[in-house]
Nucleic acid binder design. Structure first.
Length: 1000
RNA sequence: GCCGGGGUGAUGGAAUUGGUAGACAUAAGGGACUUAAAAUCCCUGGGCCGCAAGGCCGUGCGGGUUCGACUCCCGCUUCCGGCACCA
């Protein structure tokens, strides 16, 4: 077999390159332009597969070409070494994940070296190195302090087999665990999260500035899923706040009366006195000029002492605009007697008697006004402030039993009902108190907030739907007449997983909340309210306004439940009587005639809504109940409050005294050392966080560490970042588009906002790559027996051939999957052997064939240009064409050397060897990229296609740059073409050096 | 359903962005060398008709624009990727 010994050559040069350190970066050579080329750091599974070669070796072609173009290229490599496989392997083989990982890293490093890539090995790192994860933890504490990292309740995906929480992305479409295939359950629990949703807008908007393929940007936009619309409140026409409210009064009579009224109004509110919630001696001086201010003062004072909603009032009788001061009345009633030793009843009775006398003295009846002010505070915020006035008459003829708690009220008769105030029926009193009741209703059953992208259709909202899990639903208990039915439906929904709920169950189901009505804020119409599982609790507000005439889902639901449909956007309705597009408004009051676009904002404004965006994206869950990850650097004090571990205690080391077999309890919870460490540093009773971080956290900033991998005081200095960032191009797998790529962009933005990085976007350009399939066209898998082992291929045909073949399969910048062709790689090897032989050719000439020289310059141009476009396949094709051309001729040493330089990025070992064989003493990889001469690209004569009526009928040879007439003359002379020529052409189209088209 | 990208020989893929479709490579067929095989080299290599010269057809399908369309426009079809009862 006539062939070169690739094994020997590759070993020889890999050793020399390593010794001379020609690919090390050390400090930047600032005389050269920088170029940061990044590839995704691999997980050290223990064996390099062909995918790694596709990811790294092909990119190396680009890297080497850029080096030859005079760039200081930074091409680092490291290991993303935390993660589940190590833990599982350790469990299986009964050893430590750290040992397993370190061993794999060492082995894979050797395999990676066999690629012969120009990696900047002096700048490597690994996520498992404490010097690395120290900074991962440090960032976490910064994020925690800035409310980016937080602990909050969430519904999580739980795999009971892996005993861990999974991110949505880690759940397969069938609802199975990505790692083990087990069915994933939904579970409510507290979890560590990152507020990525806060960055949703920026993550979308900043895409515009990036030089990325549109498809990747679009995937991210879809993933974030921004919809622009409005949030609108629909008040309920029935109040049903269920809960406790503290009434800021010590007056039992007042409280009882108010409680009675609430009960009668349908409130399920329990009023409590300050004493009942443990506030003794609640007493606030009513010294403000108005009732309203006094009510507010009382409410605020009490709200300081409780988290419950607080209601306070102040009321009084006014005669001729003057308040009848209760203190004065009381003093007059007591007439010098001491209050000491008297009961409230006794004082009250004295006041009643006194008042009767006043009324008598004035002729039996005096016109007055009863003013009633309320203030309601929840969470320290005033939610309502009302005052009502009703005309009453003071009387000397009390009826029924006097109420000593409300002595003044016992003596007034309502002018509205003509009845004694204390004897009015609840209905009568409620009617009088209507403004207050309304006001309070609004507070207590606020309303249902909906999100809609179509506020223009508000007038067409004929019913509402809440998600079955909507928190408001619980408050309807005791109010609706069909609670059993509602509860049953909720249970049914909870057992269904999302897949069943969305795909299998297109048929609409739901339950009406009997007795509950909402008010369409646009037209004040009362509309029914349902719960139905077609409304998702996690999206928008978990509630919708339903517009059956203009939404298919609402239409389907309305049809099934026979609900009213109201058309508000004019258009031809389909057969189904539904139109989901935008148009001109009708049946919409003052908005009739507006376009949907115009009406959206206006209608929202009218009903007090707010234009708002919602997102499909959820906050990123980052806690994992597993061992082999970065410990979350949080400790809890005795009260259970979380504190970040201070920087001086970082790295917060992963304990080693742990049984990491999955038991449902996080492995770190079993570490004595970790607990002792925590108590020793922070004090007795303090406990450590026992969760570790999602490995996507590790990979969210590794590119920043590469550039400053030995820095002991910062994760990456601003100086180094200014030198190297942003990443000029990031090559990676399409599967990372919506996870790693989005997370790391988010991470970078947070760091940017904290002033810790120079760039708000890490990756200037991004190229996704597809997969290498097995020879049978299927995804490689052991079970299919179609796995191509790169080591074997390298041994058989050489690293250069493997790399070149992977580059030759197709264009690199696309996500096409290419099958490995066993014959194809042989073709590459044949090419390399012909190159080897070519250099051995004894008869190298001094002078150059002009013809060949032109091809050489064309080749320089083509190969260089294609590499810039990641079209390594056509670059290689051009090198093959040129070799074919050289083989029929004698060539100069200069031409051969240029050819080798063009080939060097593709076949670094062989070209280095042949470069040496031609007598060069320095590395070919330190050479510059050859330049082409524009003037030598064109030949003296060209063959021009002759078309008749647009069809090619022949060719004519003509001098380059000939005029139309000159070419036409040649055409006329051509015998073969004569039969197509019929006199004078009506029209001639001539494209210089290309074609001439004659039309007759 | 919405969005993005495709469909070219037996196969992977080319085509300077409207200008000679199928470069380069693989598989296949034929030949040379060889006792033979491997390797290597040479020839053929989209389909149909034809001894040939040559002709007709041909880039998923149907229309259109143009002197000329793989390329642009309209309609369909199909495959791949992202999202999806997302209001």
């Amino acid at each position: 077999m006539a062939s070169y010994n690739h094994e020997e050559i590759e070993k020889k040069w890999q050793k020399k390159w390593k010794e001379s350190g020609i690919y090390d970066t050390e400090n930047r050579d600032t005389t050269k332009g920088k170029e940061y080329v990044l590839v995704e750091w691999p997980y050290p599974s223990g064996n390099l597969h062909i995918g790694h070669w596709f990811a790294f070796a092909v990119v190396d072609i680009y890297v080497r070409a850029r080096r030859m173009h005079g760039k200081q290229v930074f091409f680092p490599m490291g290991f993303d070494a935390f993660g589940l496989p190590a833990e599982n392997a350790a469990i299986k083989n009964n050893l430590n994940p750290k040992e397993w990982t370190d061993k794999n890293i060492a082995y894979m490093k050797g395999q990676l070296e066999s690629m012969g890539n120009a990696f900047s090995w002096d700048k490597t790192t690994s996520s498992t190195d404490p010097e690395y994860y120290k900074w991962t933890q440090w960032m976490f504490t910064k994020f925690f302090e800035n409310d980016i990292a937080y602990r909050g309740e969430g519904i999580v995906n739980w795999c009971s087999s892996c005993n861990t929480v999974l991110a949505n992305e880690q759940v397969l479409p069938e609802g199975d665990c990505e790692r083990c295939g087990n069915q994933v359950e939904k579970k409510k629990m507290d979890e560590w999260k990152m507020r990525i949703t806060k960055y949703a807008d920026r993550l979308i908007d900043d895409l515009d500035s990036l030089d990325w393929p549109e498809s990747i940007k679009e995937s991210q936009r879809n993933w974030i899923g921004r919809s622009e619309g409005a949030e609108i409140d629909f008040p309920l026409s029935l109040s049903l706040y269920g809960g406790e409210v503290v009434f800021a009064t010590n007056n039992h009579g007042k409280l009882e009366r108010m409680q009675k009224l609430f009960d009668a109004a349908g409130f399920s509110i329990k009023l409590k006195t300050p004493l009942e919630i443990g506030v003794k001696d609640f007493n606030v001086e009513e010294d403000r000029p108005t009732l309203e201010e006094n009510a507010e003062k009382k409410a605020r004072a009490l709200a300081e002492k409780t988290d419950l909603p607080v209601l306070a009032d102040d009321s009084g009788f006014f005669i001729d605009g003057e308040e009848i001061d209760p203190v004065t009345v009381k003093r007059n009633a007591l007439a010098g007697q001491s209050e000491e030793g008297m009961t409230i009843e006794e004082v009250g009775n004295l006041m009643i008697t006194y008042y009767q006398n006043v009324a008598k003295a004035r002729g039996g009846s005096v016109d007055a006004e009863w003013h009633n002010a309320f203030c309601l505070i929840t969470s320290k915020k005033i939610v309502s402030h009302t005052q009502t006035t009703r005309p009453v008459t003071l009387t000397d003829e009390p009826k029924g039993v006097m109420n000593p708690y409300l002595p003044l009220r016992s003596l007034y008769i309502s002018k509205v009902t003509g009845k004694h105030v204390l004897l009015q029926s609840d209905e009568e009193e409620l009617e009088e108190l209507n403004p207050i009741i309304k006001g309070i209703q609004n507070l207590f059953t606020p309303s249902i907030k909906v999100f809609t992208t179509r506020p223009d259709t508000l007038y067409g909202a004929t019913y509402m739907v809440l998600a079955p899990e909507h928190p408001l639903v619980e408050k309807f208990k005791g109010v609706v007449s069909n609670w059993d039915e509602i509860e049953a439906y909720q249970k049914e929904t909870a057992t269904k997983d999302d897949i069943v709920r969305t795909t299998e169950n297109k048929e609409k189901t739901g339950v009406k909340l009997e007795g509950v009505l909402a008010i369409n804020p646009a037209n004040q119409e009362e509309i029914p309210v349902f719960i139905a599982d077609y409304v998702l609790s996690g999206y928008g507000t978990g509630a919708i306004m339903a517009v059956p005439a203009h939404d298919e889902r609402d239409f389907a639901f309305a049809k099934k439940f026979k609900l009213a449909t109201k058309e508000v956007v004019s258009n031809k309705l389909t057969d189904e009587n539904i139109f989901t597009g935008e148009g001109t408004l009708i049946n919409s009051g003052e908005f009739d005639g507006l376009t949907s676009e115009e009406a959206k904002g206006k209608i929202t404004k009218k009903v007090g809504g707010e234009m708002k965006s919602t997102y499909r994206l959820r906050d990123w869950s980052v806690g994992r109940q597993r061992y082999w990850g970065v410990p979350i650097p949080i400790v809890y004090d005795k009260e259970g409050k979380a504190h970040p571990v201070p920087e001086k205690h970082l790295p917060w080391l992963l304990p080693e005294d742990v049984d990491f077999r999955p038991t449902g309890e996080p492995p770190l919870a079993k570490s004595k050392e970790l607990l002792e460490r925590t108590e020793k540093i922070f004090g007795d009773g303090w406990t450590p966080e026992v969760e570790t971080m999602d490995t996507f956290v590790d990979s969210s900033w590794y590119f920043l560490r590469y550039i400053d991998n030995e820095n002991g005081t910062e994760f990456s200095s601003m100086e180094k970042q200014k030198e190297w960032m942003p990443i000029d191009i990031y090559f990676g797998g399409a599967e990372h588009t919506t996870m790693h790529l989005l997370y790391s962009r988010f991470w970078q933005k947070v760091l940017f906002d904290l002033g810790l990085v120079t760039e708000s976007e890490p990756y200037k350009r991004r190229i996704n790559r597809g997969l290498v399939l097995g020879p049978d066209g299927n995804k490689m898998s052991k079970s299919k027996g179609n796995v191509i082992d790169p080591d074997e291929q390298v041994k058989r045909l050489g690293s250069d051939a493997v790399k070149m073949y992977l580059a030759f399969m197709g264009p690199y910048g696309e996500t096409t999957n290419y099958p490995w062709d066993l014959g194809g790689i042989v073709g590459i090897r044949r090419f390399l052997e012909r190159v080897d032989k070519m250099i051995d050719k004894e008869n190298i000439m001094d002078s150059e064939d002009v013809h060949l020289e032109r091809h050489l310059h064309q080749t320089i141009k083509k190969v260089g240009g294609d590499i810039e476009l990641y079209k390594f396949n056509t670059a290689i094709s051009q090198l093959m064409i040129f070799l074919n051309q050289m083989q029929t001729l004698k060539v100069s040493k200069n031409t051969l050397e240029i050819f080798l330089r063009l080939l060097a990025p593709f076949a670094p070992h062989l070209t280095e060897e042949l470069w040496e064989r031609l007598g060069n003493m320095t590395s070919i990889h330190l050479e510059e990229w050859p330049e082409f001469d524009e003037s030598k690209l064109v030949s003296d004569t060209v063959s021009i296609a002759v078309q008749i009526h647009g069809k090619v009928r022949g060719l004519v040879e003509s001098p380059s740059g000939s005029s139309e007439d000159e070419v036409l003359a040649l055409v006329r002379k051509d015998e073969g073409l004569s039969k197509w020529i019929e006199g004078e052409p009506k029209r001639v189209i001539y494209v210089e050096n290309k074609l001439i088209n004659l039309v007759f």
